[in-house]
């Protein structure tokens, strides 16, 4: 809300604001004057975690540290650094935690591998159960035990008796 109001004020004030300091904190004039650079800075900022609120990117957060990091990103973009260089600057200081998209390394291997593990486990379970089912169908029935044979013979006899009677 406040931002919107300051934006309106800035628009009304027009050129007076445009020539002001490039990095006034918390104001639209915090934005870079070059729209392409500002868009790049925003893209970079959206990938960086605010370490205070932790579930917001530095672009979304109103925390003081997020504001400082936004300024640093813009200064570095304005100085002509590549996206990777800007991200590396912040990553060097705050580690993997600051990246909203965690990189693949030894620590995050389980994180990234979990869906594959789950899928692999599921496929394995299906293959095993299907093989067992087919095995059960194909496997020959064990030979009859003497008792079973005797019972079978008895049944057959009684069946014949019924027919003949």
């Amino acid at each position: 809300m406040l931002r919107r109001l300051t934006l309106v004020a800035a628009l009304l004030a027009g050129p007076a604001f445009a020539v002001g300091p490039a990095f006034a904190v918390g104001l639209p004039s915090e934005m870079l004057q070059d729209p392409a650079q500002e868009a790049r800075a925003r893209e970079i900022g959206r990938e960086l975690r605010c370490l205070v609120c932790q579930n917001q990117s530095i672009e979304d957060s109103e925390a003081g540290l997020a504001r400082d990091l936004r300024r640093i990103v813009r200064e570095r973009v304005a100085a002509g650094e590549s996206d990777a260089q800007v991200v590396a600057f912040v990553h060097d200081r705050y580690g993997d935690f600051v990246l909203l998209r965690p990189p693949f390394n030894a620590v995050t291997a389980v994180l990234w591998g979990a869906p594959l593990l789950a899928l692999g486990g599921g496929v394995l379970a299906i293959v095993l159960s299907r093989r067992r089912m087919r095995g059960a169908l194909v496997a020959e029935a064990p030979p009859l035990s003497p008792e079973e044979r005797a019972r079978l013979a008895a049944l057959e006899h009684s069946e014949e008796d019924k027919r003949t009677s």
Partner: peptide, 13 residues
Amino acid sequence: EPGRVAIDWGVYG
């Protein structure tokens, strides 16, 4: 006062 050195140390609060 600007908090820049703290960022170089990775301070988040």
